[in-house]
Write a protein that binds this DNA or RNA. Structure first.
Length: 973
DNA sequence: GCAAGGACGTA
DNA sequence: GTACGTCCTTGCA
């Protein structure tokens, strides 16, 4: 008899740390360890042949919870960190894998796997057989027998080593310096920091082995302790005799576990295809499935993936396709709802654990010299990850100066490194000198630089893009980043923005407000002027808070299937945006200044005209005063009121009045237009030119928009005018730098194409495939007019309907847009749905989904939440319905361009094209390239943009990108 | 000095 | 009918 005992828990942990954890299944669940585990089980059956072939087999796991060792020594394994988030969901899966291979999976409450293994090994030996323990855990070495009846086998794959390595007497002696029967004696003395076995302080393996080889056992050693010559050693032993004895009990494996299955129950069973393949298919393990199908002579296609473990959402099938697929998806969702229970529970437990840790500002450290900084760097390298934050003199990372850095390696363990605090009164030259007690900024940055560049150390920021931008200006590159702001965005959307809001919500503590430190308004100071001690408390708390939020939010990623979205779309985009912001865009100050004068003059003329027509002066910028003049004083008919009871004076109202012969209305419309262009663009933009770079640097927000779009602010470069002739003059002030040229590339009709894909509308898809004018085609389908020679008004109506569809159409809105009656608009919509019934199905599906789940999704799995979906207010509910129809369309298009942006720079580099991506305007990317290289750049840019959905989603419509080059943005567009 | 509302620029 | 940000006025602190 040969019993093979696999130490399942040890294998998973060792494999997790020994192998790169790259494998995930299609819903983002990490399964690298499960895969390694399955390969190992398969390999064992392949490699253990002849006399090594086992006749009996079992896989043993640790049971969660307390064991008898916790009663002996309360600190046992107390310092062990919680299992890595990626690993937790894999625990139940390895049990399932064991069962799939028709092998008994054994775990027992109150016992460690090691004890169960020891017991079975003894039973096998007593029955006259032998046992092989598949493990490399040193704690098991005590079981090895010199006669070979109990052996160990290490199967963790390592480069350059044979796949299976036997551990016998020699290996044990090498490790402990004693024979296996003395291993527990040595361990009792030297202890084990991993399991927190105390041992005798100051005695290591070497000394312990020497002592045991002389005295045989711990007990005998303690009895003869007085004979030991070395003073220190003798005293340590005598003082810690109790610890040594307790340690021995801790490391001694119990061989008397009351096992439930007796050894006959462990006889090897043949693999059963109907057991095996459903699991392997659910895990999406193609290679091993293929190998086993050959071996078992079974066809895996005959089996369905086990619904309990299969992926929730297949990318490309998210959103709506047709009723049948939606149904099967719902079924899968249910199924994984169960299989994800462990990950959900883990996330909740982490939240509870972290929330319970109190904040202690008095524990924060201030790093004032190189020695202290080196200690922190060493600790960070040990930990492998660090929450970090930059403190600066302002909100704009293109102008703010670095004042300090904070680091946290665990909740409550945090430090501040002050670098640029100044004293004295600020003068016009930027303030007083540096305060004492700070490291030289260059020296400190040189010390932390390798840390930030080290890909094996994860840097956790809150809004990494800001800090990456600051650090880049100090020549510090950052690799391997997590971002609590983006984690929160992927999980909850733009619900929480600031760290204070996140802290308040998840930890019940908002943290110190920056206003308390620097004040606000006129009396506001910069962080550089804050006292170091005060700044330290704030900054260290920020890093501490970031670390806590990361520990709360990161596990939710797996539990809520958002890992792929976060890791492949949101997180990698941040450094791309940081570079775009850093590059800025060149604008021609002279053009804007000339336009400013022109607009001001023309506006003044309209102003004078307005006073004349109104027969009084008033503030043209005041809708209130205007409304009173038009509707009260002049007594015009048909005025409507806004929700606050004020007269409505929007452009559409004034336009109406103008047509009815009210010249004042036209004058106001024209004045407002010019005034808008002047105040928002020609006057404001030059003030944004950065002195250092001579360019305008916008700030993108990656976490503000419900649907996944970006937004742009300070200044907003996503709403530069284009529709009117005056507006385009402003656009022409965005110019390429000397020797360069601008390339503008925009997606053609991306949202309608996305709609055609998700709602699966064949007529629309065909039209795009054939390159038809989509609005004319719609008009022709709806009104039965041939495309050739179609009246422009008919096409205009169809265009409005197409846009209306994307916006979640209502008869009311369409009527408003087209200036027709509600009845007529309703008829249009009815006709449209008759011609494209799939669209109606899509809309109903989204309405149903949002009501049921409170969210809808993009084709890449981005979730868009609508907490209002069940509102009792009918108009609020109608709004949610329209928005939930629009969100998957707008959001999927936004995901596509995000993916294009992430891939753009590597692809341009690969093609050896020197092109700088400067701006994104939702469906358009603007680049600056050396003059003459535009014709080489454009094909690459188009290829990346057009293929951006692949391979995650195979779109069923062609994507078209139009690109042009010119010296300014107006002509390139 | 700040928040809300109205208006208007973009996709 | 969707999604944003900015400027200006108004009203209140």
């Amino acid at each position: 008899m040969h019993l093979l005992l696999v130490d399942g828990s040890a294998y998973i942990f060792r494999a997790f740390h020994a192998l790169p954890q790259l494998n995930r299944k299609s819903d983002g669940l990490p399964v690298g360890c499960v895969q390694g585990f399955c390969s190992m089980l398969y390999k064992l059956t392949e490699d253990l042949k002849g006399e090594d072939a086992p006749t009996h087999m079992a896989v043993i796991f640790d049971h969660s919870g307390k064991t008898f060792r916790d009663d002996i020594y309360t600190e046992y394994k107390a310092q062990r960190p919680p299992a890595p988030v990626e690993l937790v969901p894999q625990f139940p899966l390895t049990r399932a894998a064991t069962r799939a291979f028709s092998i008994p999976s054994i775990e027992m409450e109150g016992w460690e796997a090691d004890d169960i293994i020891a017991t079975y090994a003894r039973l096998a030996r007593e029955a006259g057989g032998k046992a092989t323990i598949v493990s490399s855990d040193k704690d098991m070495m005590q079981l090895i027998e010199p006669d070979g009846s109990i052996r160990m086998l290490d199967t963790i794959a390592r480069p350059g080593q044979p796949p299976l390595r036997w551990i016998g007497m020699d290996e044990v002696f090498k490790k402990f310096g004693v024979t296996p029967d003395k291993v527990i004696e040595v361990q009792a003395l030297c202890g084990d920091s991993v399991d927190n076995v105390p041992g005798v302080p100051g005695i290591g393996v070497k000394t312990a082995a020497e002592l045991i080889n002389t005295y045989g056992t711990v007990e005998n050693l303690l009895e003869h302790a007085d004979e030991i010559k070395q003073n220190a050693r003798r005293e340590k032993l005598k003082a810690n005799a109790d610890l040594a004895l307790v340690s021995k009990r801790l490391v001694t494996l119990s061989q008397d576990v009351p096992v439930e299955l007796d050894i006959d129950a462990l006889i090897r069973q043949p693999m059963e295809p109907s057991n095996l393949f459903p699991f392997l298919k659910a895990m999406e393990f193609a290679t091993i499935t293929k190998r086993l199908s050959g071996k078992l002579e079974a066809n895996p296609d005959d089996f369905e993936a086990d619904p309990e473990y299969a992926a929730t959402a297949v990318p490309g099938a998210v959103g709506f396709d047709n009723a049948a697929r939606a149904e099967s998806r719902a079924a899968r969702h249910e199924a994984t709802g169960r299989s994800n229970a462990a990950t959900v529970a883990h996330a909740a437990a982490e939240h509870a654990r972290v929330r319970a840790i109190p904040f202690k500002p008095e524990d924060y450290e201030i790093i004032r010299d190189a020695a202290a900084l080196q200690r922190w760097i060493d600790a960070i390298e040990m930990t492998g990850h660090v929450a970090t934050d930059t403190e600066t003199t302002g909100l704009d990372n293109q102008t703010a100066d670095l004042v300090g850095l904070s680091f946290s390696i665990a909740p409550g363990t945090s430090a501040y490194l002050p670098l640029g605090h100044t004293d004295g009164e600020a003068d016009i030259f930027g303030g007083g000198g540096l305060v004492e007690g700070q490291m030289d900024i260059r020296l400190a940055l040189d010390m932390v630089k390798p840390l930030f560049a080290d890909p094996s150390i994860l840097k956790i920021f809150h809004n990494a893009k800001y800090d990456i931008g600051i650090l880049a200006r100090y020549d510090v590159a950052v690799k391997s980043v997590d971002d609590t702001l983006l984690l929160s965005y992927a999980l909850d959307g733009p619900q929480f923005n600031t760290m204070g809001e996140l802290g308040e919500h998840w930890l019940g503590f908002a943290g110190q407000s920056i206003k308390d430190l620097i004040g606000s308004g006129k009396k506001q100071i910069t962080f550089a002027q804050v006292k170091i001690e005060d700044g330290a408390r704030y900054a260290a708390e920020d890093a501490d808070m970031t670390m806590r939020l990361w520990q709360v939010l990161k596990p939710r990623l797996v539990a809520e299937n958002m890992t792929t979205l976060y890791e492949t779309i949101d997180r990698p985009l941040a450094p791309v945006l940081a570079r775009m912001e850093g590059r800025g865009v060149n604008i021609d100050r002279a053009i804007l200044s000339r336009l400013s004068g022109e607009f001001a003059q023309r506006a003044a003329a309209f102003e004078a005209q307005a006073y004349e027509l109104a027969e009084q002066t008033f503030n043209l910028g005041s809708p209130k005063q205007l409304g009173e003049i038009l509707f009260d004083k002049m007594g015009l008919e048909g005025g409507t009121k806004t929700k606050t009871g004020a007269w409505s004076t929007g452009a559409d109202v004034l336009e109406d009045l103008a047509l009815k012969g009210v010249p004042l209305a036209r004058t106001i419309v024209d004045w407002r237009q010019l005034n808008k262009l002047r105040s928002t663009y020609t006057d404001a933009l030059p003030a944004y030119i950065n002195e250092r770079t001579g360019r305008v640097h916008t700030t993108y927000s990656q976490h503000s928009v419900l649907t996944g779009r970006l937004s742009s602010n300070d200044p907003n470069l996503q709403n530069i005018p284009v529709r009117t002739e005056d507006g385009r003059k402003i656009r022409s002030a965005f110019v390429a730098a000397p020797g360069k040229i601008l390339v503008s590339a925009d997606y053609s009709q991306i949202e309608l194409r996305v709609l055609a894909h998700i709602a699966d509308i064949q007529a629309l898809k065909d039209a795009f495939e054939e390159g038809l004018d989509i609005h004319a085609m719609t008009a022709s389908e709806m009104f039965g007019v041939p495309v050739e020679g179609m009246p422009s008004d008919i096409r205009r109506r169809a265009k409005a309907i197409n846009f209306g569809i994307i916006y979640g159409i209502s008869a009311f809105g369409l009527a408003n847009q087209l200036g027709i009656g509600r009845g007529e608009a309703g008829d249009y919509i009815k006709t449209y749905f008759e011609r494209f019934p799939g669209i109606k199905d899509y809309m109903e599906e989204q309405r149903r989904k949002v009501k049921e789940d409170g969210h809808v999704s993009t084709i890449f799995g981005r979730r868009i939440n609508f907490p209002n979906a069940k509102s009792h207010n009918p108009s609020e509910r109608a709004f949610v319905e329209r928005a939930s129809i629009n969100a998957p369309i707008q959001g999927s298009a936004a995901d596509i361009i995000r993916r294009a942006m992430i891939r753009m720079e590597p692809e341009l580099n690969k093609a050896r094209i020197d092109a700088d991506m400067l701006l994104q305007v939702h469906d358009e990317l603007i680049f600056e390239v050396p003059l003459g290289t535009e014709s080489a750049a454009i094909p690459v840019i188009k290829r990346v943009m057009e293929g951006a959905a692949e391979p995650a989603v195979r779109l069923t419509v062609p994507i078209q990108v139009d690109a042009n080059a010119a010296g300014n943005w107006d002509e390139a567009h």
